[in-house]
Design a binder for these strands. Structure first.
Lengths: 338, 338
DNA sequence: AAAACTTTATGAATCGATTCAGGCTCGATT
DNA sequence: AATCGAGCCTGAATCGATTCATAAAGTTTT
């Protein structure tokens, strides 16, 4: 418990505590000699700033909270990594919370972050979270929505156009000759899921000819749920199966891929084409390399954190919506071997 | 900035600040009436405890730092998730830092966590980190090594027996008839890598007959490095290639799997058997389902956090090493189709 | 040489929760 | 009636960094 405080440093350097604080925070206003002496004292005593005291007095925090929908999903791993990179430029650390699509956990983490008085919150929300975020804002804690468009414009957001992404995915399936398409995804409390489905519907309706679009609902966006959905599809007689599946994310798609096999032979892509969403790094390495809608995940994280810091620096800023466009990545899972 | 402090609550409830604090921290010593009034005041004013002030005065923190070697690796995602689960039981949040095998970043995060005066630190270290951790300990911050055995017993650790894992993996390769084995992994600053190699060497030496074991070094444990290593192997004449590869982790193995193809046909497992380490959830969904050494990743995280909390509660505790055994998971990548 | 600035340093007040020595009430004990 | 103790409450002191009004020293201007 060798608690070395700023007072000890001041004493050792033969200056006042105010001067030490100035060396730490605005070295320009201190003489070179004092800076040298203080720095030497810091060195020899092994002084480390007490962030709690700093936060208490100055009201500034060096942590940002990040509430993530699904920590297991490499997509969010990449997003967090982007935020982390951007944060480390300015000494910001990430307080991390994984909700696993559970509103209770979501609330818990927001409470925790409020107690911590984080500088701001990045959140990929489950359901409607605005009232809770408004309250944080009233306390001076900004929030930026990640991977979710802020419909009412009350908060800044960084997202990918999921509707367009859904449309592009299904257009691709139609272009490669598929007509009986299934959308696999859920729960529908997650906005990205409904958006991707909406885009898929639009594509099906605007196709020149008739296209079936059925919805296979899942409880969560995981590999296991994908496999379960795939098993349900496989349980049907062959003629009633879709000839293409658009999965709401790559985890579901990888699960589906595992399930869509008969006697060791996969039905993908010949009988059933399969496309996912996110283009996580494992999509390319899948049993059948997976076509997917790529999101610039790392850039989403970087951008979200940058906007958050800008907004906390200047609270006058008006919320702004940043929307990236997804990119179609075609691989074997939608390319029939002739 | 409606900063509601304990003072406001006290005033509203008509009691002193001391009483409010007591209601918050030891409600048993306060009359039922006071508890009621204070709670009502907290409710109506929307009071939230200021963790910075609490930390400053009481010296207790509700955050734990977690320094992770590679945030992109789903294995660590699982470990973090385990720690998070265990922490949320007692209102502990995770401050997250990803070093990406960079000692500078590792130091940066430890500095940051020290400033934050976290309750303790979980770390999967790169290279030798003991002196730095000793310093944290002197400051009252405990540390538990994750996924790394603490050789000198100075700190508690939770890990998997990597030597045994390496041995089991190579024994499996030998048992399925392979004799020219390559170990792909690096950098050797990472203890797990050297341990797995040591295990592999032991297996090769103790095999009844002669077994070749070559080492193909990589710069990092990523899919990209695995692919690069695979390309180097493929550049050799066919007769000089190994007939089995043990990759230091699954990311490398997945990269290798991508590289080990000739004209669209994979050499795995017929010409080259391939086994990884970690059994991340994507191993099963790979192009050729990947054999791997499974680690109980989530349990590692839970256990590490539990031990950390126990140690911070009672500093007298002696460091202890928890070692789980890995489990061989055989899939197609080491099972030759006859 | 006096006046007017600059530059730099000082140290007390402050942030909000916790702690703890001391005080008050009221019923029980002597 | 005096004393004691239990139960509860009070409020000042405290944690460590920052801030800011004030002062001291040094430099330039008149």
């Amino acid at each position: 418990m060798a608690a070395v405080s700023i007072r000890d440093v001041a004493q050792h350097a033969g200056v006042s505590v105010g001067t030490v604080s100035n060396v730490l925070n605005r070295p320009g206003e201190v003489s070179a000699e004092s800076v040298r002496r203080v720095q030497e004292a810091i060195e020899t005593l092994g002084y480390v700033r007490n962030d709690a005291a700093r936060k208490l007095r100055a009201g500034v925090s060096t942590t940002v909270g990040f509430v993530v929908l699904d920590g297991q999903n490499p997509f969010f791993g990449d997003v967090v990594r982007g935020a982390e990179d951007e944060g480390s430029k300015s000494g910001i650390a990430i307080l991390y919370g994984n909700t696993d699509e559970d509103p209770k956990r979501e609330r818990m983490y927001l409470d925790l972050f409020e107690e911590q008085q984080v500088r701001g919150v990045l959140i990929s929300p489950y359901g409607d979270i605005n009232p809770r975020l408004e309250r944080l804002r009233a306390r001076g804690i900004a929030a930026v929505l990640v991977d979710r468009f802020s419909g009412d414009g009350r908060f800044s957001s960084v997202s990918v156009d999921s509707v367009t992404g859904g449309r592009m995915a299904v257009e691709h399936l139609i272009a490669t000759g598929r007509r009986r398409i299934a959308f696999v995804g859920g729960p529908f409390e997650i906005r990205q899921v409904t958006d991707r489905l909406a885009g898929a519907r639009a594509a099906a309706e605007n196709a020149g000819e008739h296209v079936d679009l059925e919805v296979v609902a899942t409880d969560a966006l995981t590999v296991a749920d994908g496999a379960a959905a795939g098993a349900r599809v496989m349980a049907r007689p062959r003629s009633e199966r879709p000839d293409a599946i658009f999965a709401a994310n790559d985890l579901l798609a990888l699960g589906l891929l595992q399930a869509l096999t008969v006697e060791g032979r996969t039905l993908v892509p010949d009988e059933i084409a399969l496309i996912g969403f996110d283009d996580i790094s494992f999509a390319a390495a899948a049993a059948v390399p997976l076509s997917s809608m790529r999101q610039p995940s790392r850039m989403i994280g970087r951008t979200a954190l940058r906007i958050l810091l800008e907004e906390t620096a200047d609270p006058e800023l008006i919320p702004r919506q940043t929307v990236f466009q997804p990119e179609l990545v075609v691989r074997a899972s939608t390319t029939p071997r002739r």
